[in-house]
Design a protein around this nucleic acid. Sequence first.
DNA 1: TCCTCCCTGTTC
DNA 2: GAACAGGGAGGA
Length: 283
Amino acid sequence: MPELPEVETVARTLLPHVQGCVFESAKLLRSSAMHPASMPLEALNRMRVQNLRRRGKVLVFDLTPTPDRSTDMAVPTSMVIHLRMTGRVFTQEANSGQGAHTRCIWKLHKPDFSPFLLFFDDIRTFGKVFVATEQLLANWDFWKNLGPEPLEIGLAEFASRLNGKRALKSCLLDQTVIAGIGNIYADEALFAAGLDPRRPASSLARQEHGRLLSAIKAILARAIEKKGSSIRDYRDADGNAGSFQKTFSVYGKGGKMCQRCGEVLQKEQIGGRATVFCPHCQK
DNA sequence: TCCTCCCTGTTC
DNA sequence: GAACAGGGAGGA
């Protein structure tokens, strides 16, 4: 499940393949792969990929028109892809055929090079492609309300965003509070910070805010270094798995022993999500 | 603020 | 053949 470190890794591995390339055509194999407010894929034709970056858990292709682009249609500024649970984006040779879970295929070329294909595969079909103008993006609630980047946020703002009576875990998963954290890194960060995921978000002391933010930043940075976590489906744009799953302390380890104190790790549903924590180390 | 649903493959 | 995985939309 691609969270911030996985999407960051996809962006980094895909960038050298697509930067400067021009969209020639696109084929949509499953209409639900498009965000309902998206412009049609044809709007991408003759658009150049200026940059590829990550914002929260989404991939953002920044686009500029080529001089020969038709002026019939509004000019998109971005293509945003949310991989959700099982989305994968990768390049293939021009003669490659679609797979069982391919949702979308784009044909691109770099000036003076032969064309190649960009695939969007998604087993569970939760992922979405959104081709958009500035205006469409600005009207997209999810985008508009996306919280700050955890690797950039300062302590004062982080502390002020953790408010309300709801569980700390739910708060970290809320993309409007902070962008990019999912179930894996929420559990791992709360363990590293020694904080009980069930505690009300507003109950944290100043020093605990600091511990939590440091833990989040350290874990996300380490996970990016390890090219993300591959539980099952996740691969980067070159088809490589990440290795951070080897260093999990709690995620997926309910019923096992806490590596720090030896107590049995507890598993509980919080905010509808499986949550694993150590009742002894996390207070 | 919390719960249910969407979707498919894997595991029990 | 049911339970489970889970991000986010939408409804209670």
